[in-house]
Write a protein that binds this DNA or RNA. Sequence first.
RNA 1: GUGGGAGUAGCUCAACAGGCAGAGCACCGGACUGUGGCUCCGACGGUUGCGGGUUCGAUUCCCGUCUCCCACCCCA
Length: 524
Amino acid sequence: MIKAIRGTRDLMPPETALWNFVETAVRDVFRAYNFHEIRTPIFESTELFARGVGEDTDIVSKEMYTWEDGARAADYSVYRKWATTRFPGVKAFDQVDPDAAQLRSPLPTMSIQLEGQWNFIVFAYQLTTEALFLLQLATEKLKRTTEFRLVTALPLPSNFEALKSVPLITEMVSIDSFPQSLTLRPENTAGVVRAYIEHKMWDRGLSKFFYIGPQFRRERPQKGRYRQFYQIGAEVIGPATAGSESPARDAEILEMLATLLDRLGITGWTLELNSVGCARCRPAYLERLKDALQGVAPTMCADCQRRAVTNPLRVFDCKVPEDQPIIDTLPTITNFLDEECHIHFAQVKTILDSVHIRFLQNNRLVRGLDYYTRTAFEFTHGALGAQNAILGGGRYDGLSEALGGPAAPGIGFAIGEDRLVMSLTETAEAVLRKPDVYVAPLGAGMNREAARLARELRRHDLVVELGDETFRLKKSFETAAKLGARYILILGENEAKSNVFAVKNLATGEQRSVPRAELAQSIQ
RNA sequence: GUGGGAGUAGCUCAACAGGCAGAGCACCGGACUGUGGCUCCGACGGUUGCGGGUUCGAUUCCCGUCUCCCACCCCA
């Protein structure tokens, strides 16, 4: 049996009803805040994530699904063009290898016919990186974006002796571009900002995007952690003159998230908030933190000793009880914010207070992705085990520039949809819309009339399930009850003739005879 | 990537110390041929995750492997 691969899963009914419930609520809430949907590709160039997420993050350094997209279907035409110039008298070509674009194929790429005979077979090879490098040294004119392939035309003489006297013809042929390194997106912010830049959105003031879709990370699966997982996110990005840098944006996003969680009926969440400074004030803080760690790290747990060297900020994530008093003595970023960052953070908090959003200032909250600046936040939920963060986000004022775009401050978040669904208290059945009416055709020939009736009822926005004329009436009743249908409509010979139908309320047991024209209304 | 636990019918789980693979629920049919839920009866359902080893004999013991769960790591 072929099974879903590790870390992926099928979302099946009735659970999908819960996912739809979530996504419908998300769209409703986002609309009220004037966010608009964006859909970016699920794969992008590897470079985007290396620059956008950070080369040194775990995500980029060891969790991405990356591959070389090198095959080019147009290759054959390149070789054909080469042959035309090289052998002016060529009469015909024959593509020998149907997969000429697959460079590792041992088959000849094509044969060439000169004057009525098959005279040459042609092989093409991809040059190694080392060979290319030497070539570039030798000829400065070569463009970086040009890929060269070695093409050899092997003459086919009439006998073996003649083979010695004919020369091989070997030349270089250039192909338009290198194979590209591509990656399944591990998150969506980089893609959104890439699209923002590519479509020159800065000319249109403030952009407010949201997205819902799958992301991919090659981590070890666990509860609430999958290799294909789903994120719901939003981004506010634009020129500073459009207000993108304002603390009002931060507060608006946080208030929107609180509204969304309330709307979904999720209780018991906590908003943790911090400011991680900016490119101007954070370096000084990091130096102080490293200095402080140098003294105490040897007395801490093995993980912290490692973090102290590789990623000092992550020391704050430590959960070892013995380390906590030590961590409490470490300097926090909060005390190192420069004037502007401090004011910005204070204003975010002031606005949150005024709209009555409760939050917990957590001076230890740090983010794992390089591009975050200033406001950083997480919403956590108790019932999720070790993966207790249902959403996280923050400000990323330098991301656009890091990706080669204009200055465009922004703030965004990502909700782990898998985890959000897990923390819902409703069962999937509760949000599943059950059939309004079950149409039970009774007797040979009744399927046709049943189809007509169902069509009419569905046009009144009713959920209709349809039985079959071969079912005995008892079976239709059982099926209707099992489906949770509110009504059953009986359609036998009598009803078909009189155009008056037996409609029974399955909950109350009340049964009435209803003329065709009043059917939809009687079921509402 | 590291450590631990678990995989038996569609689902939840049994099977003593190695000896005929079972139950409840679900599903299908009948009792009941135009009136459901209840009840009763019956049928269906399995390469015991997969592969190898030990044994007269393996769900059971051993080795390998895959997947899920828990924790770490990291994140959402």
